Amino acid sequence: MVARWFHPDMPSPEATARIFLFPYAGGSAPMYRDWLPLFPPDIAAQAVQLPGRLDRRAEPLLESLDDIVAATSEALAAELDDRPYAVFGHSMGVLVAYRVAAAMTHEFGHGPMLLASAAWAPEGFAMPTREQVEMPQDELLKWVIGLGSLPPVMYEDPEMLAVTLPPTRADLRACIDYTDDAALLDCPVVTYAAAEDPLMTPAAADSWISRTPEYLGTSVFAGGHFFIYDNVLPIVTDLTRHIRKLAQQEGGRP
């Protein structure tokens, strides 16, 4: 069976721009199922599915950020066409999207037109400690729930826990071994944050300013770290506005 890196695997040929959505630690493509139909027909949205989860559960989990970024970048390079594209991530998904964007620009010569960041920033974000990552299941689950607004279905179903906790640990291990090298992007960055996010300092989003030629600002919502679940429509609406504007600019270049 061919690995499905992107859901859906066939983007609309009618769209003039694309966006790839990266999940948080332990997350999978279905977390964006409610997002996909909200994008207008001119924007083809696809969620990223990393190895070791759901339909890719038979594949080994990747516990190195370098391995995750290398594999995802290769898959993305093979997926792209001549349409401009954006990348969006939540929490760890931003870290992966950021490093993939840098790799696509500097190694593949086909970088995104926009990086959209929710609940993560290069500075002012509290990375988990190794002690937290290796906590017993009940303690790890309590820590994740404490971040705010994680849907109950994610932690009340034992079968769901058996599916989500192993990739959560693997992803968090990849995060704690990450060393920031202040990689620069060639595209604008827009950010989304929560007023009560325990992992972000109030000024964290501003740390993107030194990483991008154009910082498009931040939108702050009520809620905790998982605020995106309650704010899908306004985030998609804002992403659509930025993508359309940037795609038009891309189309006007010689």
Rank of each mutant, 00 (worst) to 15 (best):
F88P: 00
E131I: 05
V163F: 10
L246G: 04
L141C: 14
M92K: 04
R33Q: 14
Q46S: 15
Y178Q: 02
W120A: 02
D34E: 13
V2W: 10
Q137N: 10
Q249H: 09
P136H: 11
V48F: 06
R18E: 12
I209S: 04
G146Y: 10
M135G: 07
D238A: 06
V100I: 11
T16M: 13
R57E: 11
P166R: 12
I68G: 01
S207M: 12
A195P: 03
P40Q: 08
P198Y: 12
P202S: 12
G27V: 00
I209P: 01
F226H: 12
A174E: 01
E196P: 04
M200T: 10
Y98C: 02
Y229E: 07
L147D: 06
L239N: 00
L36H: 07
L38R: 13
A70K: 02
S219D: 14
D238M: 01
S73Q: 03
T164S: 10
A86F: 07
D67N: 06
E63V: 03
S91D: 13
W5T: 03
E196C: 10
Y229I: 09
A182F: 10
H242K: 11
V94L: 01
R173S: 01
I176H: 06
R244A: 04
D186Y: 00
Y229R: 08
D180N: 05
G27C: 03
G148W: 13
P158Y: 08
P84I: 08
G93D: 06
D230I: 06
A119T: 04
A203H: 11
G251R: 15
S91E: 09
L62H: 01
V163M: 14
S73H: 04
Q132R: 12
V87Y: 00
V220T: 15
E214G: 01
T201P: 08
T129L: 06
Q248V: 06
D177Y: 02
P122K: 08
P166S: 12
R173N: 04
P11T: 12
A174Y: 01
D157Q: 14
F39S: 03
T237A: 12
A70R: 01
P122C: 14
S12I: 09
A25Y: 01
P213Q: 11
A86S: 13
D186I: 01
Y32V: 03
T240E: 13
T105M: 05
A204L: 10
A86P: 02
L199M: 14
S12Y: 11
M135N: 10
P13D: 15
W5E: 02
I235R: 02
V220Y: 07
D181C: 07
M200I: 10
A170D: 11
E134W: 08
P30V: 13
G224N: 10
D82F: 11
P158D: 09
P30Y: 11
M135S: 14
R244C: 05
A71D: 02
D206M: 04
